[in-house]
Write a protein that binds this DNA or RNA. Structure first.
Lengths: 337, 337
DNA sequence: CTGTTAGCGCCTTCAC
DNA sequence: GTGAAGGCGCTAACAG
């Protein structure tokens, strides 16, 4: 293919009409074997490829799915993408990837871009579901699946997530059962509902239930990066009153925390227990092996993608709420007092 | 916006022609303040958004860049994406993400999709540059930047990479200087040129130069995952003749290898040294801290994106070869004999 | 300055 | 079965 050829050109060369070409290209209507052959051979020769943009314009579909996540360099999210891509691919969709870095404005911005671009669907790992989000999803008509937290919208879009409150509650319960009484938490960033508010809530419930002390200086809210975990640990451990266990709301933060602790002479888990969340790839490679709340991001991504496809195909969805399993995995970074 | 409105509708409601609407929307030509205001207010009211697909059809640009990498869950590649997205975003481009899992057929498949979709550019982290690739890039006219290895094409596309042969050579040299004489290598997958062939070559050159033994049973070729590193280590260590050092061509593999070694009673680095490659986030969090060849993927991604933008803008590019710096970082996973 | 018109490349009635 | 014609939503000459 030298210069962009169009359906018209190949119609001419095959001595047929453009509609015939279109028909054989789409297998949309019966075309005599003769013409079909003629068209196909010209297509072959010229290496002709139909213009997907033009096609999209008339068909009103782009075969593109917008995927919006907070951060791609977090193993949890990249696994999510793996799951998403795997199923979308089999349905002929591609991924338009955007990252918000947990910034609400960026989320809104990308959401609008998704709409402008006429994307066929959206998979969205929300940070905080604000009124502006609600507005957007009230007005838009783009099939959507939310990932990572429960989201209530007028339009009734499904979401797939674990029960974050419960999971955090159970993780904290476990620590309590291990006789820990002074437990700190490193939660997600300030505005992050799922890994921030929800998990913090579960933690608080467990502490209250057990009648344990709640120090706000033992509660941090930071991004899910190793660096932020390191910093959060430094804050917590700079208090005069020190915890015997830290519940990190992501393995990334747990790793950063352990790094800090070790550099400052604490042994994990002998001096202080650290619980993670996610069970990323290296949770079992790291030493001590991370005790953590295992999620299955590949599955979650795949599930979300399937729910999206269903919506696009107009299938009635079975349920809005898709709670997926998680599991507390006890390994070496925590111990009983 | 209830039902999809078009430029036509808002032209009607504002009592102007479609071209006027188009003009104010694009700021393309001077429009009287009066009309402009009228149009803008209607746009405001209706929440009108121009259809990017239609726009793309006439402008022959999609503002979409195809990014093709082997694997997103590898920290090195996700960092690459971070760098790419950061600069593309400022130019109004979005990313169409695809992963090849190092499969040549998938690469070709996605490349074709990129072309079909009329993407404005391609950033491609090649596995192996085959004749089919060469064909594709000979016929296509899509601006491209190669990432991670030197690639020669007719069309003269730029590439950004470190000098893999040299880097591997130096890494191996270092091990040799540390008095290691029996050095194994865990290279990239069979068909991977950069992390496979090139790094293996650098390793071999260093060994030959030093007159050290070359055992093919000390050379593995596997994917850059923790699991594959684990497995590769098991293969190497099952030989009767055992190495005193392993040069892993990715930190992922190094991590997997160390995991294997420890599970099987070897201490790192006391019994066996392990050298990594990449310097991913957790190289310094892991214990022992990884001795590794540091790359800067965020920068590399950003550089690639800039080179692509230059191409798209028709700027003459300064150089095809963009060798970026790397650095051997000695930490704790290797030691002198 | 503004409106009319002709496409961009493709699909889809609608007649033949 | 096949072709001609209209239109998807937008932009860019071309007149006025």
């Amino acid at each position: 293919m030298q210069i962009k050829s169009s359906i018209k050109d190949i119609a001419k060369r095959a001595n047929v009409s453009v509609s015939t070409v279109s028909r054989v290209l789409n297998n949309s209507k019966y075309v005599s074997e003769d013409l079909k052959r003629r068209v196909l051979s010209v297509v072959e020769e010229t290496g002709f490829k139909p213009n997907m943009v033009a096609r999209g314009l008339v068909n009103k579909k782009t075969s593109l799915i917008g995927v919006l996540i907070p951060r791609i360099s977090n193993n949890f999210f990249s696994k999510l993408i793996e799951g998403i891509e795997e199923v979308l691919q089999t349905y002929g969709y591609n991924i338009l990837l955007s990252t918000s870095y947990n910034e609400i404005e960026k989320e809104l911005e990308y959401l609008n871009i998704f709409e402008d671009r006429q994307l066929d669907g959206i998979i969205f790992s929300v940070t905080e579901f604000t009124d502006q989000h609600k507005n957007f999803f009230g007005e838009t008509v783009v099939p959507t699946v939310f990932l990572g937290q429960k989201v209530e919208t007028l339009k009734k879009y499904p979401y797939v997530t674990i029960d974050n409150i419960k999971a955090a509650y159970e993780a904290t319960r476990y620590l309590i059962k291990q006789k820990h009484k002074r437990i700190a938490i490193m939660a997600g960033p300030e505005k992050d509902c799922a890994t921030g508010d929800n998990r913090l809530q579960g933690y608080l419930e467990a502490l209250k239930e057990a009648g344990l002390p709640l120090y706000t200086s033992w509660q941090t809210r930071r991004y899910h990066t190793i660096d932020d975990g390191y910093y959060a640990a430094s804050q917590i451990m700079s208090q005069s009153e020190k915890p015997t266990a830290i519940f990190a709301c992501s393995d990334q933060q747990a790793l950063g925390a352990i790094n800090y602790l070790r550099e400052h002479g604490y042994r994990v888990p002998e001096d202080i227990s650290v619980m993670g969340f996610d069970d990323v790839d290296l949770a079992t490679v790291f030493r001590p092996k991370l005790t953590t709340v295992k999620q299955n991001p590949v599955d979650m991504g795949a599930t979300a993608a399937r729910l999206l496809i269903d919506q696009i195909h107009g299938n009635s969805l079975t349920a809005l709420e898709n709670l997926v399993p998680y599991r507390l995995v006890v390994r070496e970074s925590t111990k009983s007092l």
